[in-house]
Write a protein that binds this DNA or RNA. Sequence first.
DNA 1: GCTAGACTATCAATAATTATGATATTTAAA
DNA 2: TTTAAATATCATAATTATTGATAGTCTAGC
Lengths: 295, 295
Amino acid sequence: MLSLEQINMLVLSAELGSFSACARKLGKVQSAVSHGINNLEIDLGVELFDRTSRSPKLTPEGERLLRSAKALLAQSHEFEKIAESITRHEEGALTIAVDDALLTPYLSTILALFAQAFPHVEIDLISLASPDIIATVADGNVDIGVMFSEVEANKQVDFCYVGSVDFVAVCHADFPLAALRRLSESDLMPYRQIAVRGQQKRESQVLISMTPNAWWCSSNYSVLALVKQQIGWAYLPLSLVQPFVHTGLLQKIDVTFDHKPWSVPVDLVCKKGALRGPAHQWLFDALKNAFSAER
Amino acid sequence: MLSLEQINMLVLSAELGSFSACARKLGKVQSAVSHGINNLEIDLGVELFDRTSRSPKLTPEGERLLRSAKALLAQSHEFEKIAESITRHEEGALTIAVDDALLTPYLSTILALFAQAFPHVEIDLISLASPDIIATVADGNVDIGVMFSEVEANKQVDFCYVGSVDFVAVCHADFPLAALRRLSESDLMPYRQIAVRGQQKRESQVLISMTPNAWWCSSNYSVLALVKQQIGWAYLPLSLVQPFVHTGLLQKIDVTFDHKPWSVPVDLVCKKGALRGPAHQWLFDALKNAFSAER
DNA sequence: GCTAGACTATCAATAATTATGATATTTAAA
DNA sequence: TTTAAATATCATAATTATTGATAGTCTAGC
């Protein structure tokens, strides 16, 4: 079985054009490299270097093998890096769940930075409705959740307030509600509300529907799609509907009551007592700072 | 520097779930594997196997490293395969030049088979006008050429007849020539011919133009494009123009003389005296048989 | 054309690593 | 409980790699 030490000698000697220089760089004696290359040539049955001149030059065959040798070395360095990552107690993978309405460009920026800081930690990014996120975090299936706050504080989960997102009531421009002004809660009742509810059929308690005939989606984007089809009205993040309000496709509903929170708090959630490795810590802090900076 | 032998032990032991089984497979004694794994663990600073039970089971850390270890082994096998390919005197790369009108599906089929037979030989496939192919083959820049035969036999190049391709004179359906019947050579003279000529400005001698005002292209597809634009008429391979004749966009020209070859021979060309490795030989034979079978 | 410096191959001796065989201990199944 | 098979450990043997010295060769500079 071939030795990586010899492969390294091949690559270094080829780059430096000298066995002696290679030996110096490896902290060995010249004859060690000479022997190493020679043995490699014997093992492979291929003459790698042309020694007729003073400085050994790769043969065409050696050239052909060099590319593969470099890839092999790179792979072995990768392997060692992963081992180092493990000894630093970095997690092998982090699973984060984000409410789809919070999948902002900020998040991708942070993930890009994370990839640089922890190149050997994988990320599972799953998109869930806020009501589902607490459950998956509590179950331990998700390490960090980014979600709209629930009033009922789950005892198994730690919350960390990081900011808030403005919600507005919107409907299609041709929807009956669009024409009306200064509406009260009871005015909305006759019309179907589209709201978010998780797969466990638990609706959010901050944006709870008061209409008797509601439809439910598991993502804000689905809600948006139904609103565009004039199936009903909905509370949606301002940033999500802004572009369509601008083009006139959707319209904000002019509601006068304000006992509903228009600014919905966003929390970072983690399983209570979960041991946090460096990657977890880093990502948690980065998310916290990013959302604070965003407003 | 880590040893591939130990990496192999890691992978085999993980797959077999047993150090002893791994040792048997490697033709070593059990203690060798035990030591090998142990040393690897010490080098990496990572506990790879959980030995509490009878059969060692990978730890989560070991699991994480296993994937990378397998990739590393695969890479090293690849390296050795290339070395074997070299000792079999297989060429590192073959350059083949094909007249663009001969780039048929048959060719891709052959190349797919070639890739299976010689996975470590690279292919440079370049598309040239037939008049240019002889020159590049003679220069040694191209190993095998597939082209329409030239009358003048180049002394530096070996020819091998493999079949023929039918050419027809065509023009756009609205081109003046389209309406005429039973034309003679002199009838074509007033109209511009579009013909193929290599970058060295040498036209093919089998499809030489007799019109005084010709335009030249370096590929049959370019010729076709100009004919479609009613810029002139041209001799083109029947298979190339057939679809457009069928839709009525182009029309065959009804010429009565037949001293021009309508069926143009196709030759495989190689540099005379060039040493042919196994890959060259294989590809040459495959091309020869394919073109013979095609008609 | 010659010399100094630097390069490589080779060799024998030595150091280091790796493999072996025997043994004790543990484990899972009969 | 017993048995068969697995693993860890250890001293020893075998193999492999490293070293230092030497001789031959090439190139640049004078």
